[in-house]
Simulated assay, not measured.
Amino acid sequence: MRKRALSALATTAAWLLLAASPAHASVIWDGDAARGTDVFPSLECPSPSSVITADSSTGHGTVFRYTKAAGDIRCESRGVSVGGSRYAFADGGTYYFDWESQLSTVSGDFVVWQWKSYPNADQNYPVIMTVKDGAIRLFHVPPGSTSWTLLWSAPVQAGAWNRYAVGIHAGSSASSGWVELYFNGVPQTLTGGGTRYAARTWDSANEPKWGAYDRDDGSTEIINRVDSLKLGTSYADVG
């Protein structure tokens, strides 16, 4: 009887410990649009372009709506705010960025996400995601290079919601960093044949940017609705 009682007590204690443990212990940032644009420390979106929270009208509830007006080239958020302060990413850190996106157009050639370097960077944007002529594309860009390495591409449609998770291990050498990608919850095979691409992914400092940047032709209005933003240290944190 005593052994059964002790066993039951141990089981109960273990269950209580599990229940008290957070489900996502390594989540760094929850960018829920219901919290407003203060989840971003910087907005680079001059008027008449805008970043606002709005109802998605497609069942996603409140989302961020980035509107890059015709005539402008950029409407982006930069970085993430944790505890009211700009979060400092670090060389050697592992980061998973997760979000959902709906685009008003998939024509032309424009940027929807960047792992951008600041300041005085040799590697302007180590990892960058673009849309071109109906396809979403992920690139790695080496230091000082105008030659981008296409890591992955998939067709997308205007008005359709898709989910992305980019995993980055920040490394300042070609052998110490890596990139992963999940598309609609599925790990993707990248250039080279694996799900993880080894590459330099860190410069003087780096931050994520979401939105729309039409670097070659700003004549078209682009609306990028973004939802369910999260940042963690593993895919399990955000997936």
Rank of each mutant, 00 (worst) to 15 (best):
G71M: 08
D217Q: 07
Y66E: 03
T12P: 05
T12Q: 13
R65A: 11
V82H: 03
V186I: 15
A20G: 09
Y66C: 00
E207Y: 13
S107H: 01
L229Y: 03
T58K: 12
S47M: 06
V156R: 00
G83N: 12
D55T: 10
D30T: 14
S21M: 15
Q157L: 03
W161T: 04
W210A: 02
W148R: 04
G61I: 08
I52L: 11
P187N: 08
Y235R: 14
P119C: 06
R2M: 12
I168F: 02
D217F: 03
S176V: 07
S42I: 10
V39A: 06
R2S: 12
L229S: 04
V179T: 05
W15F: 11
T53G: 06
P126F: 08
G84Q: 11
K230M: 15
S153V: 01
V131T: 04
R215S: 06
A8C: 07
R2K: 13
V112D: 00
T233L: 14
S47K: 14
L9Y: 09
P22A: 12
D98E: 10
A121K: 02
P46F: 08
A20K: 09
R78N: 14
R74L: 10
I73M: 08
T233E: 14
A20R: 12
A14F: 11
L16S: 10
A158F: 08
W15M: 13
R163W: 03
L190P: 02
A33K: 09
R86A: 15
S219I: 03
T53C: 09
G144I: 04
E221A: 13
G108T: 01
L18W: 15
Y118N: 12
S85L: 13
Q123T: 07
V51A: 10
S172M: 03
H169M: 05
T105M: 04
N162H: 14
V106P: 00
W161C: 04
L190F: 07
D216S: 13
